[in-house]
Amino acid sequence: MSQGNFILREPEYEALLSILRKLLADASAKVVFLVDKNGTLLASAGDAVGFDTTSLASLAAGNIAATGGLANLIGEKEFSILFHEGERDNMHLSVVAERLILVIVFDRRSSVGLVRLRVRQATARLAAVMATAVAAGDAELGGVEELTEADIESLFK
């Protein structure tokens, strides 16, 4: 199995962002995040100020990984949707294109049903953009291969 790098370029990033913005509005959500399964934030829409997005991405990935482990124990491939209900805010997490996690935070201005419906619509579009991103990323590294040992050493000066 290849463990190559995943490269996200400007056009695909912008495409992901525009889908997230539309989802944010359509689902009446507070904020929407797209995270990869390894715990890195790819993009967000809405008012992400006040959120520790790095921690959120890492914990969302841990959450999906742990429930995936539970799913395997009962013979399921994965649980593709998780919903956490809070006193004020709720969180909906779903797996997109097998490698990403879509996280939506919403309050009583929206509902689980609406969020679920909008997520389903957005998921197909996000998956299509990801397919393009993966195909483009496989073609070349696009600059990172030019890093020299001196560049790397400069990080520690």
Binding site: I7, N38, G143
Partner: peptide, 15 residues
Amino acid sequence: MSFINYSSREINCKI
């Protein structure tokens, strides 16, 4: 698998 974001010019690695 490192994640390289050319849009935000970021390299993310997991150790």
